[in-house]
């Protein structure tokens, strides 16, 4: 049970970075930390003591098999996270190009 809470604390660390930090790169790192917390959570609840990988093998009873689906879900969410992160970094570079700063309080041409 404690591990789940640690995982949620990791999520909250990422959330803190997104909400509180002023540097764009730190915000991106916060988003990545959040993503990894979710992926870690997926891996954690699928964990089984002495579990066996769900690959078929001959002369072997398939007992205590772990659920294969969370791993597939984690992989999918990693791919999605990769795409989001790549786009975020690309936009961050372009923002630096346009504004000359990573400080989000100085990037304020939009208001209202």
């Amino acid at each position: 049970m404690l591990t789940y809470f640690l995982c949620l604390i990791l999520f909250c660390v990422g959330l803190y970075a997104i909400v509180r930090k002023r540097n764009i790169i730190k915000i991106i790192i916060g988003i990545i930390i959040c993503e990894y917390a979710v992926n870690l959570f997926l891996a954690l609840f699928a964990y089984k003591m002495n579990g066996r990988s769900p690959i078929y093998s001959p002369r072997q009873e398939i007992v205590n098999m772990v659920d294969p689906l969370p791993q597939a879900l984690a992989l999918t969410s990693i791919v999605i996270g990769l795409a989001t992160t790549a786009l975020l970094v690309g936009i961050a570079i372009r923002i630096y190009e346009k504004y000359g700063t990573f400080d989000i309080t100085k990037i304020n041409r939009l208001k209202g």
């Binding site: 790549a86 570079i93 630096y96 190009e97 000359g100």
Partner: peptide, 14 residues
Amino acid sequence: LVLVLLKFAPKKDL
């Protein structure tokens, strides 16, 4: 590659 090849000219637009 795209991230590397971005033409980098800070503050120009500003």
